[in-house]
Design a protein around this nucleic acid. Structure first.
Lengths: 238, 238
DNA sequence: CGTGCCGAAATTGTATGCAATCTTACCGGT
DNA sequence: ACCGGTAAGATTGCATACAATTTCGGCACG
Protein backbone atom coordinates (compact mmCIF):
# COMPACT_ATOMS: atom_id res chain seq x y z
CA UNK A 1 0.00 0.00 0.00
CA UNK A 2 2.76 2.39 0.94
CA UNK A 3 4.60 1.11 -2.09
CA UNK A 4 1.71 2.13 -4.33
CA UNK A 5 1.52 5.56 -2.76
CA UNK A 6 5.21 6.13 -3.19
CA UNK A 7 5.04 4.89 -6.76
CA UNK A 8 2.22 7.29 -7.49
CA UNK A 9 4.20 10.10 -5.97
CA UNK A 10 7.28 9.25 -8.00
CA UNK A 11 5.44 8.79 -11.27
CA UNK A 12 3.50 11.98 -10.67
CA UNK A 13 6.71 13.81 -10.08
CA UNK A 14 5.56 14.89 -6.63
CA UNK A 15 8.83 13.31 -5.57
CA UNK A 16 11.59 14.73 -7.71
CA UNK A 17 14.12 12.31 -9.17
CA UNK A 18 17.13 12.10 -6.93
CA UNK A 19 15.18 12.84 -3.77
CA UNK A 20 16.49 10.97 -0.77
CA UNK A 21 13.87 8.77 0.78
CA UNK A 22 14.66 8.79 4.45
CA UNK A 23 13.21 5.68 6.04
CA UNK A 24 12.28 7.34 9.29
CA UNK A 25 10.75 10.33 7.56
CA UNK A 26 8.65 8.26 5.19
CA UNK A 27 7.66 6.11 8.12
CA UNK A 28 6.45 9.14 10.07
CA UNK A 29 4.60 10.38 6.99
CA UNK A 30 2.61 7.19 6.67
CA UNK A 31 2.62 6.48 10.38
CA UNK A 32 4.27 3.10 10.15
CA UNK A 33 7.59 1.74 11.32
CA UNK A 34 10.73 1.66 9.26
CA UNK A 35 10.26 -2.06 8.74
CA UNK A 36 7.32 -1.51 6.43
CA UNK A 37 8.98 1.39 4.70
CA UNK A 38 12.02 -0.73 3.96
CA UNK A 39 9.87 -3.41 2.40
CA UNK A 40 8.18 -0.84 0.18
CA UNK A 41 11.50 0.65 -0.82
CA UNK A 42 12.88 -2.76 -1.65
CA UNK A 43 9.89 -3.39 -3.87
CA UNK A 44 10.31 -0.08 -5.66
CA UNK A 45 14.00 -0.75 -6.06
CA UNK A 46 13.05 -3.93 -7.91
CA UNK A 47 10.84 -1.97 -10.21
CA UNK A 48 13.63 0.45 -10.87
CA UNK A 49 11.79 3.45 -9.50
CA UNK A 50 14.18 3.94 -6.62
CA UNK A 51 17.87 3.23 -6.37
CA UNK A 52 19.19 1.88 -3.10
CA UNK A 53 22.82 2.22 -2.11
CA UNK A 54 24.13 0.17 0.75
CA UNK A 55 24.51 2.11 3.96
CA UNK A 56 23.50 5.27 2.16
CA UNK A 57 19.81 4.96 1.62
CA UNK A 58 17.24 5.04 -1.14
CA UNK A 59 16.73 7.72 -3.76
CA UNK A 60 14.08 8.35 -6.34
CA UNK A 61 15.47 7.05 -9.61
CA UNK A 62 16.95 9.59 -11.96
CA UNK A 63 17.11 7.68 -15.22
CA UNK A 64 19.82 8.65 -17.64
CA UNK A 65 18.92 9.22 -21.29
CA UNK A 66 20.46 5.85 -21.98
CA UNK A 67 18.25 4.15 -19.45
CA UNK A 68 15.31 5.97 -20.95
CA UNK A 69 16.14 4.57 -24.35
CA UNK A 70 16.41 1.12 -22.84
CA UNK A 71 12.95 1.46 -21.39
CA UNK A 72 11.47 2.21 -24.78
CA UNK A 73 13.55 -0.42 -26.49
CA UNK A 74 12.08 -2.94 -24.07
CA UNK A 75 8.59 -1.67 -24.76
CA UNK A 76 9.16 -2.00 -28.46
CA UNK A 77 10.12 -5.59 -27.95
CA UNK A 78 7.30 -6.63 -25.67
CA UNK A 79 4.22 -4.60 -26.47
CA UNK A 80 3.89 -5.42 -30.17
CA UNK A 81 4.04 -9.06 -29.16
CA UNK A 82 1.18 -8.48 -26.78
CA UNK A 83 -1.12 -7.02 -29.39
CA UNK A 84 -1.80 -10.16 -31.45
CA UNK A 85 -2.50 -12.20 -28.34
CA UNK A 86 -4.83 -9.52 -27.08
CA UNK A 87 -6.60 -9.31 -30.42
CA UNK A 88 -7.30 -13.02 -30.29
CA UNK A 89 -8.51 -13.25 -26.74
CA UNK A 90 -10.44 -10.04 -26.31
CA UNK A 91 -14.02 -10.46 -25.18
CA UNK A 92 -16.81 -8.00 -25.76
CA UNK A 93 -16.82 -6.92 -22.16
CA UNK A 94 -13.13 -6.14 -22.44
CA UNK A 95 -13.81 -4.08 -25.53
CA UNK A 96 -16.35 -2.18 -23.50
CA UNK A 97 -13.82 -1.59 -20.72
CA UNK A 98 -11.39 -0.33 -23.31
CA UNK A 99 -13.91 2.03 -24.85
CA UNK A 100 -14.89 3.40 -21.48
CA UNK A 101 -11.29 4.03 -20.57
CA UNK A 102 -10.74 5.80 -23.87
CA UNK A 103 -13.67 8.11 -23.24
CA UNK A 104 -12.40 8.84 -19.77
CA UNK A 105 -9.03 9.61 -21.31
CA UNK A 106 -10.35 12.07 -23.85
CA UNK A 107 -12.46 13.71 -21.16
CA UNK A 108 -9.37 14.34 -19.12
CA UNK A 109 -7.55 15.54 -22.20
CA UNK A 110 -10.00 18.39 -22.55
CA UNK A 111 -9.70 19.49 -18.95
CA UNK A 112 -7.15 21.89 -17.60
CA UNK A 113 -5.04 21.86 -14.51
CA UNK A 114 -2.32 19.62 -13.18
CA UNK A 115 -4.75 17.26 -11.49
CA UNK A 116 -6.47 16.44 -14.73
CA UNK A 117 -3.12 16.13 -16.42
CA UNK A 118 -1.98 13.58 -13.86
CA UNK A 119 -5.17 11.65 -14.09
CA UNK A 120 -4.79 11.63 -17.86
CA UNK A 121 -1.29 10.30 -17.58
CA UNK A 122 -2.47 7.53 -15.28
CA UNK A 123 -5.37 6.65 -17.53
CA UNK A 124 -3.08 6.58 -20.50
CA UNK A 125 -0.77 4.17 -18.75
CA UNK A 126 -3.67 1.99 -17.73
CA UNK A 127 -4.51 1.62 -21.40
CA UNK A 128 -1.25 -0.16 -21.98
CA UNK A 129 -1.69 -2.28 -18.90
CA UNK A 130 -5.16 -3.26 -20.01
CA UNK A 131 -3.68 -4.43 -23.28
CA UNK A 132 -1.19 -6.57 -21.41
CA UNK A 133 -3.85 -7.91 -19.09
CA UNK A 134 -6.01 -9.04 -21.97
CA UNK A 135 -3.09 -10.73 -23.65
CA UNK A 136 -3.25 -13.04 -20.66
CA UNK A 137 0.40 -13.51 -19.80
CA UNK A 138 0.87 -12.55 -16.17
CA UNK A 139 4.64 -12.48 -16.44
CA UNK A 140 4.60 -10.07 -19.33
CA UNK A 141 1.94 -8.09 -17.54
CA UNK A 142 4.29 -7.61 -14.64
CA UNK A 143 7.09 -6.60 -16.98
CA UNK A 144 4.78 -4.08 -18.58
CA UNK A 145 3.79 -2.71 -15.20
CA UNK A 146 7.40 -1.99 -14.54
CA UNK A 147 8.00 -0.54 -17.98
CA UNK A 148 4.95 1.69 -17.80
CA UNK A 149 5.99 3.02 -14.41
CA UNK A 150 9.52 3.67 -15.59
CA UNK A 151 8.38 5.29 -18.79
CA UNK A 152 6.16 7.58 -16.78
CA UNK A 153 9.17 8.71 -14.84
CA UNK A 154 11.14 9.14 -18.05
CA UNK A 155 8.41 11.21 -19.64
CA UNK A 156 8.14 13.32 -16.54
CA UNK A 157 11.88 13.92 -16.76
CA UNK A 158 12.44 14.34 -20.45
CA UNK A 159 8.98 15.07 -21.82
CA UNK A 160 8.78 18.14 -24.01
CA UNK A 161 5.23 18.93 -25.02
CA UNK A 162 2.80 19.51 -22.20
CA UNK A 163 0.17 17.35 -23.79
CA UNK A 164 2.87 14.75 -24.04
CA UNK A 165 2.55 12.01 -26.48
CA UNK A 166 -1.05 10.97 -26.28
CA UNK A 167 -2.81 13.59 -28.33
CA UNK A 168 -2.44 11.55 -31.48
CA UNK A 169 -5.39 9.34 -30.86
CA UNK A 170 -3.07 6.39 -31.15
CA UNK A 171 -4.96 4.53 -28.49
CA UNK A 172 -8.17 4.75 -30.42
CA UNK A 173 -6.54 3.40 -33.55
CA UNK A 174 -5.01 0.53 -31.64
CA UNK A 175 -8.33 -0.37 -30.15
CA UNK A 176 -9.95 -0.30 -33.58
CA UNK A 177 -7.38 -2.71 -34.92
CA UNK A 178 -7.94 -4.97 -31.93
CA UNK A 179 -11.66 -4.94 -32.46
CA UNK A 180 -11.10 -5.93 -36.08
CA UNK A 181 -9.09 -8.90 -34.80
CA UNK A 182 -6.16 -7.54 -36.74
CA UNK A 183 -3.29 -8.31 -34.39
CA UNK A 184 -0.68 -7.53 -37.00
CA UNK A 185 -2.06 -4.08 -37.61
CA UNK A 186 -2.41 -3.49 -33.86
CA UNK A 187 1.23 -4.42 -33.36
CA UNK A 188 2.28 -1.95 -36.01
CA UNK A 189 0.19 0.78 -34.44
CA UNK A 190 1.66 0.04 -31.03
CA UNK A 191 5.14 0.41 -32.47
CA UNK A 192 4.19 3.68 -34.09
CA UNK A 193 2.70 4.84 -30.80
CA UNK A 194 5.94 4.13 -28.98
CA UNK A 195 7.76 6.04 -31.69
CA UNK A 196 5.46 8.99 -31.12
CA UNK A 197 6.10 8.95 -27.42
CA UNK A 198 9.83 8.73 -27.77
CA UNK A 199 9.83 11.44 -30.42
CA UNK A 200 8.28 13.78 -27.88
CA UNK A 201 11.26 13.31 -25.61
CA UNK A 202 14.39 15.39 -25.35
CA UNK A 203 17.11 12.93 -24.50
CA UNK A 204 20.14 15.12 -24.93
CA UNK A 205 22.40 14.18 -22.08
CA UNK A 206 20.79 16.45 -19.54
CA UNK A 207 18.86 15.00 -16.64
CA UNK A 208 21.12 12.88 -14.57
CA UNK A 209 24.14 15.02 -15.19
CA UNK A 210 22.64 18.00 -13.43
CA UNK A 211 22.80 16.92 -9.80
CA UNK A 212 19.58 18.73 -9.15
CA UNK A 213 18.92 20.14 -5.74
CA UNK A 214 16.52 17.45 -4.73
CA UNK A 215 14.17 18.65 -2.05
CA UNK A 216 13.04 16.73 0.95
CA UNK A 217 9.91 14.70 0.65
CA UNK A 218 7.42 17.14 2.08
CA UNK A 219 8.54 20.20 0.25
CA UNK A 220 6.38 20.52 -2.82
CA UNK A 221 3.10 18.80 -3.40
CA UNK A 222 2.14 16.55 -0.51
CA UNK A 223 2.93 12.90 -0.97
CA UNK A 224 0.11 11.53 1.06
CA UNK A 225 -3.08 13.46 0.55
CA UNK A 226 -5.65 13.03 3.26
CA UNK A 227 -6.13 9.50 4.47
CA UNK A 228 -4.56 6.85 2.34
CA UNK A 229 -7.33 4.30 2.55
CA UNK A 230 -5.77 1.87 0.16
CA UNK A 231 -7.73 0.36 -2.73
CA UNK A 232 -5.90 2.52 -5.22
CA UNK A 233 -5.55 1.06 -8.65
CA UNK A 234 -2.32 0.90 -10.54
CA UNK A 235 -1.20 4.23 -11.65
CA UNK A 236 0.94 4.53 -14.65
CA UNK A 237 1.32 6.29 -17.85
CA UNK A 238 2.58 6.54 -21.40
CA UNK B 1 23.52 -13.30 -0.62
CA UNK B 2 21.00 -15.50 1.15
CA UNK B 3 18.69 -14.73 -1.72
CA UNK B 4 21.23 -16.14 -4.19
CA UNK B 5 21.73 -19.26 -2.12
CA UNK B 6 18.02 -19.87 -1.88
CA UNK B 7 17.62 -19.25 -5.58
CA UNK B 8 20.35 -21.76 -6.32
CA UNK B 9 18.68 -24.28 -4.07
CA UNK B 10 15.31 -23.78 -5.71
CA UNK B 11 16.62 -23.88 -9.25
CA UNK B 12 18.69 -26.94 -8.45
CA UNK B 13 15.66 -28.64 -7.06
CA UNK B 14 17.35 -29.10 -3.70
CA UNK B 15 14.25 -27.36 -2.42
CA UNK B 16 11.22 -29.10 -3.83
CA UNK B 17 8.43 -26.95 -5.26
CA UNK B 18 5.80 -26.36 -2.64
CA UNK B 19 8.23 -26.54 0.25
CA UNK B 20 7.36 -24.18 3.05
CA UNK B 21 10.14 -21.77 3.80
CA UNK B 22 9.88 -21.14 7.49
CA UNK B 23 11.49 -17.82 8.29
CA UNK B 24 12.96 -18.90 11.59
CA UNK B 25 14.26 -22.16 10.17
CA UNK B 26 15.95 -20.54 7.20
CA UNK B 27 17.32 -17.92 9.53
CA UNK B 28 18.87 -20.58 11.74
CA UNK B 29 20.26 -22.36 8.69
CA UNK B 30 22.11 -19.26 7.53
CA UNK B 31 22.64 -17.92 11.02
CA UNK B 32 20.89 -14.61 10.49
CA UNK B 33 17.78 -13.09 11.92
CA UNK B 34 14.35 -13.34 10.39
CA UNK B 35 14.66 -9.76 9.17
CA UNK B 36 17.23 -10.70 6.59
CA UNK B 37 15.40 -13.84 5.62
CA UNK B 38 12.24 -11.88 5.02
CA UNK B 39 14.07 -9.51 2.71
CA UNK B 40 15.47 -12.42 0.72
CA UNK B 41 12.08 -14.06 0.50
CA UNK B 42 10.49 -10.85 -0.65
CA UNK B 43 13.09 -10.59 -3.39
CA UNK B 44 12.49 -14.15 -4.52
CA UNK B 45 8.76 -13.58 -4.46
CA UNK B 46 9.33 -10.74 -6.90
CA UNK B 47 11.22 -13.05 -9.19
CA UNK B 48 8.41 -15.55 -9.01
CA UNK B 49 10.50 -18.29 -7.45
CA UNK B 50 8.59 -18.27 -4.18
CA UNK B 51 4.99 -17.49 -3.51
CA UNK B 52 4.15 -15.61 -0.34
CA UNK B 53 0.71 -15.75 1.24
CA UNK B 54 -0.21 -13.25 3.86
CA UNK B 55 -0.06 -14.60 7.39
CA UNK B 56 0.75 -18.05 6.02
CA UNK B 57 4.32 -17.84 4.88
CA UNK B 58 6.44 -18.40 1.80
CA UNK B 59 6.60 -21.49 -0.37
CA UNK B 60 8.83 -22.57 -3.19
CA UNK B 61 6.93 -21.82 -6.37
CA UNK B 62 5.16 -24.71 -8.00
CA UNK B 63 4.43 -23.37 -11.47
CA UNK B 64 1.38 -24.70 -13.22
CA UNK B 65 1.70 -25.92 -16.81
CA UNK B 66 0.03 -22.69 -17.83
CA UNK B 67 2.59 -20.61 -16.00
CA UNK B 68 5.28 -22.70 -17.62
CA UNK B 69 3.89 -21.90 -21.03
CA UNK B 70 3.82 -18.23 -20.11
CA UNK B 71 7.47 -18.36 -19.20
CA UNK B 72 8.41 -19.71 -22.59
CA UNK B 73 6.04 -17.39 -24.39
CA UNK B 74 7.83 -14.51 -22.69
CA UNK B 75 11.19 -15.90 -23.70
CA UNK B 76 10.04 -16.22 -27.26
CA UNK B 77 9.12 -12.59 -27.24
CA UNK B 78 12.26 -11.21 -25.65
CA UNK B 79 15.20 -13.39 -26.58
CA UNK B 80 14.92 -13.21 -30.36
CA UNK B 81 14.87 -9.46 -30.01
CA UNK B 82 18.08 -9.65 -28.05
CA UNK B 83 19.98 -11.56 -30.69
CA UNK B 84 20.26 -8.84 -33.34
CA UNK B 85 21.41 -6.30 -30.78
CA UNK B 86 23.97 -8.76 -29.47
CA UNK B 87 25.18 -9.57 -32.96
CA UNK B 88 25.83 -5.90 -33.59
CA UNK B 89 27.58 -5.07 -30.36
CA UNK B 90 29.61 -8.18 -29.71
CA UNK B 91 33.32 -7.62 -29.25
CA UNK B 92 36.03 -10.18 -29.85
CA UNK B 93 36.62 -10.62 -26.15
CA UNK B 94 32.96 -11.38 -25.69
CA UNK B 95 33.15 -13.96 -28.44
CA UNK B 96 36.01 -15.53 -26.54
CA UNK B 97 33.98 -15.59 -23.37
CA UNK B 98 31.17 -17.25 -25.27
CA UNK B 99 33.46 -19.87 -26.76
CA UNK B 100 34.95 -20.64 -23.40
CA UNK B 101 31.56 -21.07 -21.84
CA UNK B 102 30.52 -23.37 -24.64
CA UNK B 103 33.55 -25.57 -24.11
CA UNK B 104 32.86 -25.67 -20.41
CA UNK B 105 29.31 -26.67 -21.21
CA UNK B 106 30.23 -29.55 -23.46
CA UNK B 107 32.78 -30.70 -20.92
CA UNK B 108 30.06 -30.94 -18.34
CA UNK B 109 27.78 -32.63 -20.83
CA UNK B 110 30.20 -35.53 -21.05
CA UNK B 111 30.50 -35.98 -17.33
CA UNK B 112 28.24 -38.06 -15.17
CA UNK B 113 26.64 -37.45 -11.84
CA UNK B 114 24.14 -34.98 -10.49
CA UNK B 115 26.78 -32.40 -9.66
CA UNK B 116 27.94 -32.16 -13.24
CA UNK B 117 24.34 -32.12 -14.39
CA UNK B 118 23.58 -29.17 -12.16
CA UNK B 119 26.68 -27.34 -13.23
CA UNK B 120 25.71 -27.97 -16.84
CA UNK B 121 22.26 -26.57 -16.23
CA UNK B 122 23.76 -23.48 -14.66
CA UNK B 123 26.25 -23.02 -17.46
CA UNK B 124 23.51 -23.44 -20.00
CA UNK B 125 21.47 -20.74 -18.35
CA UNK B 126 24.45 -18.46 -18.20
CA UNK B 127 24.70 -18.74 -21.97
CA UNK B 128 21.36 -17.04 -22.31
CA UNK B 129 22.26 -14.43 -19.75
CA UNK B 130 25.49 -13.70 -21.55
CA UNK B 131 23.50 -13.09 -24.71
CA UNK B 132 21.29 -10.63 -22.86
CA UNK B 133 24.27 -8.95 -21.27
CA UNK B 134 25.94 -8.37 -24.61
CA UNK B 135 22.76 -6.96 -26.06
CA UNK B 136 23.37 -4.17 -23.59
CA UNK B 137 19.90 -3.51 -22.27
CA UNK B 138 20.03 -3.83 -18.49
CA UNK B 139 16.26 -3.89 -18.12
CA UNK B 140 15.87 -6.77 -20.53
CA UNK B 141 18.82 -8.44 -18.86
CA UNK B 142 16.96 -8.39 -15.57
CA UNK B 143 13.83 -9.73 -17.24
CA UNK B 144 15.90 -12.53 -18.72
CA UNK B 145 17.42 -13.31 -15.35
CA UNK B 146 13.97 -13.85 -14.00
CA UNK B 147 12.86 -15.87 -17.01
CA UNK B 148 15.94 -18.07 -16.93
CA UNK B 149 15.46 -18.78 -13.25
CA UNK B 150 11.81 -19.57 -13.71
CA UNK B 151 12.46 -21.75 -16.72
CA UNK B 152 14.99 -23.69 -14.71
CA UNK B 153 12.33 -24.42 -12.17
CA UNK B 154 9.90 -25.38 -14.90
CA UNK B 155 12.37 -27.73 -16.52
CA UNK B 156 13.15 -29.28 -13.18
CA UNK B 157 9.43 -29.85 -12.71
CA UNK B 158 8.31 -30.89 -16.14
CA UNK B 159 11.51 -31.89 -17.90
CA UNK B 160 11.42 -35.29 -19.53
CA UNK B 161 14.77 -36.31 -20.95
CA UNK B 162 17.63 -36.41 -18.49
CA UNK B 163 19.96 -34.60 -20.82
CA UNK B 164 17.21 -32.04 -21.09
CA UNK B 165 17.09 -29.75 -23.99
CA UNK B 166 20.65 -28.75 -24.59
CA UNK B 167 22.12 -31.70 -26.38
CA UNK B 168 21.20 -30.23 -29.74
CA UNK B 169 24.20 -27.98 -29.97
CA UNK B 170 21.81 -25.10 -30.41
CA UNK B 171 24.06 -22.83 -28.42
CA UNK B 172 26.95 -23.42 -30.78
CA UNK B 173 24.81 -22.62 -33.79
CA UNK B 174 23.56 -19.44 -32.19
CA UNK B 175 27.08 -18.34 -31.44
CA UNK B 176 28.12 -19.02 -35.01
CA UNK B 177 25.34 -16.86 -36.31
CA UNK B 178 26.32 -14.12 -33.90
CA UNK B 179 29.92 -14.29 -35.00
CA UNK B 180 28.78 -13.95 -38.60
CA UNK B 181 26.95 -10.77 -37.55
CA UNK B 182 23.78 -12.40 -38.73
CA UNK B 183 21.31 -11.19 -36.14
CA UNK B 184 18.32 -12.39 -38.12
CA UNK B 185 19.67 -15.90 -38.31
CA UNK B 186 20.59 -15.84 -34.65
CA UNK B 187 17.07 -14.78 -33.72
CA UNK B 188 15.65 -17.67 -35.71
CA UNK B 189 17.99 -20.11 -34.04
CA UNK B 190 17.07 -18.78 -30.62
CA UNK B 191 13.42 -19.34 -31.39
CA UNK B 192 14.14 -22.85 -32.55
CA UNK B 193 16.15 -23.45 -29.39
CA UNK B 194 13.23 -22.40 -27.23
CA UNK B 195 11.03 -24.72 -29.23
CA UNK B 196 13.43 -27.56 -28.55
CA UNK B 197 13.39 -26.87 -24.86
CA UNK B 198 9.65 -26.67 -24.64
CA UNK B 199 9.28 -29.78 -26.75
CA UNK B 200 11.24 -31.68 -24.12
CA UNK B 201 8.65 -30.80 -21.52
CA UNK B 202 5.64 -32.75 -20.43
CA UNK B 203 3.04 -30.14 -19.59
CA UNK B 204 0.01 -32.33 -19.19
CA UNK B 205 -1.76 -30.88 -16.19
CA UNK B 206 0.29 -32.71 -13.60
CA UNK B 207 2.65 -30.81 -11.36
CA UNK B 208 0.68 -28.37 -9.34
CA UNK B 209 -2.35 -30.57 -9.10
CA UNK B 210 -0.49 -33.22 -7.14
CA UNK B 211 -0.08 -31.57 -3.76
CA UNK B 212 3.26 -33.23 -3.39
CA UNK B 213 4.50 -34.11 0.04
CA UNK B 214 6.92 -31.23 0.27
CA UNK B 215 9.70 -31.95 2.71
CA UNK B 216 11.20 -29.56 5.14
CA UNK B 217 14.20 -27.60 4.06
CA UNK B 218 16.95 -29.76 5.42
CA UNK B 219 15.60 -33.10 4.40
CA UNK B 220 17.27 -33.91 1.12
CA UNK B 221 20.40 -32.36 -0.26
CA UNK B 222 21.73 -29.64 2.01
CA UNK B 223 20.79 -26.12 1.07
CA UNK B 224 23.85 -24.40 2.35
CA UNK B 225 26.97 -26.39 1.69
CA UNK B 226 29.94 -25.45 3.81
CA UNK B 227 30.54 -21.77 4.26
CA UNK B 228 28.54 -19.54 2.00
CA UNK B 229 31.25 -17.04 1.26
CA UNK B 230 29.28 -15.03 -1.24
CA UNK B 231 30.71 -14.10 -4.63
CA UNK B 232 28.60 -16.72 -6.33
CA UNK B 233 27.70 -15.96 -9.88
CA UNK B 234 24.22 -16.12 -11.21
CA UNK B 235 23.00 -19.59 -11.50
CA UNK B 236 20.40 -20.39 -13.99
CA UNK B 237 19.59 -22.67 -16.75
CA UNK B 238 17.82 -23.53 -19.95
C1' DC C 1 41.60 30.86 2.37
C1' DG C 2 41.63 26.10 1.40
C1' DT C 3 42.49 21.27 3.11
C1' DG C 4 42.44 17.41 5.95
C1' DC C 5 41.14 15.28 10.22
C1' DC C 6 38.30 14.23 14.12
C1' DG C 7 34.01 13.67 16.77
C1' DA C 8 29.00 14.15 17.22
C1' DA C 9 24.72 13.49 15.01
C1' DA C 10 22.12 11.14 11.81
C1' DT C 11 20.95 7.12 9.10
C1' DT C 12 21.02 2.53 7.75
C1' DG C 13 21.45 -2.66 8.77
C1' DT C 14 20.24 -6.26 11.82
C1' DA C 15 18.35 -8.51 15.89
C1' DT C 16 14.79 -9.05 19.08
C1' DG C 17 10.13 -8.58 21.30
C1' DC C 18 5.24 -8.54 21.12
C1' DA C 19 0.59 -8.76 19.12
C1' DA C 20 -2.29 -10.88 15.53
C1' DT C 21 -3.21 -14.76 12.83
C1' DC C 22 -2.97 -19.34 11.47
C1' DT C 23 -2.29 -24.41 12.49
C1' DT C 24 -2.97 -28.37 15.03
C1' DA C 25 -4.40 -31.45 18.38
C1' DC C 26 -7.79 -32.53 21.54
C1' DC C 27 -12.52 -33.19 23.05
C1' DG C 28 -17.38 -33.41 23.38
C1' DG C 29 -21.50 -34.11 20.65
C1' DT C 30 -24.12 -36.40 17.20
C1' DA D 1 -16.74 -43.39 13.88
C1' DC D 2 -17.26 -38.75 12.13
C1' DC D 3 -17.69 -33.89 12.75
C1' DG D 4 -17.38 -29.26 14.57
C1' DG D 5 -15.55 -26.34 18.11
C1' DT D 6 -11.96 -24.80 21.01
C1' DA D 7 -7.65 -23.94 23.16
C1' DA D 8 -2.63 -24.34 23.00
C1' DG D 9 1.28 -23.92 20.10
C1' DA D 10 3.56 -22.17 16.19
C1' DT D 11 4.35 -18.61 12.72
C1' DT D 12 3.95 -14.35 10.58
C1' DG D 13 3.58 -9.03 10.66
C1' DC D 14 5.10 -5.09 12.69
C1' DA D 15 7.47 -2.09 16.03
C1' DT D 16 11.32 -1.15 18.54
C1' DA D 17 16.24 -1.41 20.20
C1' DC D 18 20.93 -1.58 19.28
C1' DA D 19 25.22 -1.79 16.42
C1' DA D 20 27.69 -0.31 12.25
C1' DT D 21 28.37 3.08 8.91
C1' DT D 22 27.98 7.42 6.87
C1' DT D 23 27.41 12.43 7.00
C1' DC D 24 28.35 16.88 8.62
C1' DG D 25 30.30 20.57 11.36
C1' DG D 26 34.18 22.36 13.59
C1' DC D 27 38.98 22.92 14.18
C1' DA D 28 43.78 22.76 13.54
C1' DC D 29 47.16 23.17 10.09
C1' DG D 30 49.41 24.35 5.81
Amino acid sequence: MIRDHLRDAIVDRRLAPGTKLNEAEVGTLFDVSRTVVRAALQALAFEGLVKTERNRGSFVANPTPDEARQVFASCRLIEPGLAPAAAQQMTTSEVAAFRERLHHESDLLNQRGPTARRAEIHASGDFHLLLAKIAGNTILLRFMEELVARSSLVIALYGRSGASSCGHGDHGNILSALEAWDGEQAAQLVLAHIDHIEADLDLRATGNLTPRRAGHPGDGVPIVSGDYDGQRASTKQF
